[in-house]
């Protein structure tokens, strides 16, 4: 155990933990939105994220013509490239999420299949997408070109604050804010909230359930796509299995915060990002998952509904 390291490098670790947490939070929003509406864990969501990373890759090399051996871009060209990659990743993930819903869930739902059948269907879609991308990519990881030179903006108490991570934290914050506005202020957002409270009653009130569900998947996909772009901007590589580990972490974050609850997903994401970074420093990187899950279990023992409510025990699974 190395508490001295945590003490010495606290602000550096914390800053990096928040950047990682922002990515977790964006992905976990997708889990929590779908759960809120359908009471279903969308296990294919990690692949929605994975497809977003590849879409960003295609956007950078195919649309913007950035080659991996190029020098990083500057000025308007850089900003344009960043925006195009972000938008393409978000759209690709959102469309994938909607397709997954149509292929794997809609028919089962309309036929009144059990939640378990839907769950298996989700796992099946997830495995198919992973294998598809494994075959397409020849099992090899892919590198993302450096669009933006990575520089240190300033140093605070030994923490080097790097530009790409600052962008991730700010942009993720804006995304979350926009989503929150959408859910609370718009007609469609109200529909989503109504369905998550009571599906039957909201149908009687004239809410178009299928439309609400499609919008929910679309919104979750947009967030996963944004997370995918931020991930690939910071870590600059992806592979067919990238969704697996991040998906588990994001799902954990959603449960930690209280699944079905947007604020919970945000808080859970940041909390998990920080916890993983801090525990890696104290106990070693190999222990971060173990410690994080122990903390998760402890939190759920004391507060079974997660930190912000909506119990997974009471949910109609």
């Amino acid at each position: 155990m190395d508490f001295a390291l945590l003490h010495d490098a606290f602000w550096g670790l914390t800053f990096d933990g928040i950047a990682l947490g922002a990515i977790y939070a964006l992905i976990s929003l997708g889990y929590t939105l779908v759960y809120g509406v359908l009471r279903l864990i969308n296990f294919a969501h990690s692949e929605v994220f994975m497809i977003g990373t590849f879409a960003a890759l295609v956007a950078a090399s195919g649309i913007m013509g950035v080659k991996v051996e190029d020098d990083p871009r500057t000025g308007v060209s850089m900003i344009l490239t960043l925006i195009v990659c972000l938008v393409v990743a978000m759209l690709a993930s959102a469309i994938t999420a909607v397709l997954v819903e149509i292929v794997a869930y809609r028919r089962l739902r309309q036929r009144g299949a059990t939640k378990l059948a839907t769950l298996i269907s989700a796992i099946g879609v997830s495995i198919s997408l992973v294998e598809l991308f494994r075959i397409i990519t020849d099992s090899l990881p892919r590198e993302f070109p450096r669009i933006m030179e990575k520089t240190f903006l300033f140093s605070y108490a030994g923490a080097d604050v790097r530009n790409d991570k600052v962008i991730v934290i700010i942009a993720a914050g804006l995304m979350m804010f926009a989503l929150e506005r959408f859910i609370t202020k718009t007609r469609l957002g109200k529909g989503i909230r109504a369905v998550s409270m009571d599906e039957n009653t909201s149908t009687l009130m004239g809410v178009n359930i299928n439309r609400v569900i499609t919008v929910t998947f679309f919104a979750g996909g947009l967030m996963a796509g944004a997370a995918a772009f931020f991930y690939i901007l910071v870590y600059e590589n992806t592979s067919f299995k990238v969704g697996f580990f991040l998906g588990i972490s994001a799902f954990t974050a959603a449960v930690l915060g209280g699944i079905g609850n947007l604020k919970g997903a945000l808080f859970g994401g940041f909390a998990l990002g920080l916890m993983e970074t801090w525990t890696s420093a104290v106990f070693g990187t190999a222990w971060k998952a173990v410690i994080s899950f122990i903390i998760l279990v402890l939190v759920l023992l004391i507060k079974p509904t997660g930190l912000f409510g909506e119990s997974i025990q009471q949910a109609r699974v």
Binding site: D2, L5, A9, G12, Y235, F244, T277, S280, T285
Partner: peptide, 20 residues
């Protein structure tokens, strides 16, 4: 020493240890 199991994508803590 540090162990970063297969699948690790974030090496922040390991790098902090190396620097220290």
């Amino acid at each position: 020493k540090d162990v970063t199991p297969t699948g690790t994508t974030d090496f922040t803590a390991t790098i902090a240890k190396i620097k220290k």
